[in-house]
Amino acid sequence: MHNFFQFVIGGLGFGGIYAFAALGLVLIFKTSGVVNFAFGAMATVVTLTLWSLLNHAGLPFAAAWVLAMVIAMLIGGFTNGVLMRRIERSAVLVQIVLTLGLLILIEGLAGVLWGYGPKSIPQPLSGNPVNVASFLITPNDLFIIGLTVGVGLLLFVVFEWTRVGLAMRAIAADREVASLMGIRTNLYVTGSWALGTALSGIAAILVAPSLGLEPTMMDQVAVFAFAAAIVGGFGSLIGAVVGGFLIGVASNLIAAYVSTNLQLTLIFAVIVAVLYVRPDGLFGRQAVSRQ
């Protein structure tokens, strides 16, 4: 039983990373209605920029992180303002193809600019694992879990209880009506792209010390992040956080007690089961339309 809980705790660290990536996805989807398949590549560029700031500009880690977040927001804002806005009223297929094209484009450019060799960046909190109630957990994993829960709750509060959140929910419900109500929809959507890219960037910064930083680093993480977003209910911020932790823990338990080879297969089997029982995910709200 001790081992079981150690596996659960071991899954929370990566779960937090999946949750952050899923938060970025969901935030953009909530306001713009776009599923951004390029989010992993954009997040990797943010982390590669952080690496350059640390190694070439010689900035301290905290300062480099803050600057990388600013750059992430600029990348997100630019992507929406220059690319996505042109096709915001196009068919969903067009938007999907564009974000997939962006994924290939960004990974290719990142490879040319930074090379493909794995690079090291430090963990936000280093140090030996600590013993918590006889279970081992690293300070860095504790930091990831705390940051994920904190940011998830903060976003939930902003969305549910502030005017900004109300405006974003109005845009999500009906963009044209929101615009007619005087809400500056373009500003809010661009803002959500900026913030969503920053959140995905945090996921990439947190995972890079474990996986080694290189242009395709987020490809596999993105699959788990999509799974987290779907389980949580694509559109629910709290769902993204809970979904991330669930996927992290479930994949650890599958690897430990079934087979690492079946990790991805069984995760998606669980997703199919969840969606069969709750088609809108664990925290998703069923869309209601009046005839």
């Binding site: 596996f7 899954g11 990566f14 474990s210 788990f224 690897a255 690492t260 080879n261 990790q263 991805l264």
Partner: peptide
């Protein structure tokens, strides 16, 4: 333990070897 190249989190593998 055999792993799939798509695996990202190796903490269960490490834990199993440790155990």
């Amino acid at each position: 333990i055999s792993y799939d190249p798509t695996q990202t989190d190796f903490s269960p593998d490490a834990q199993q070897f440790k155990s």
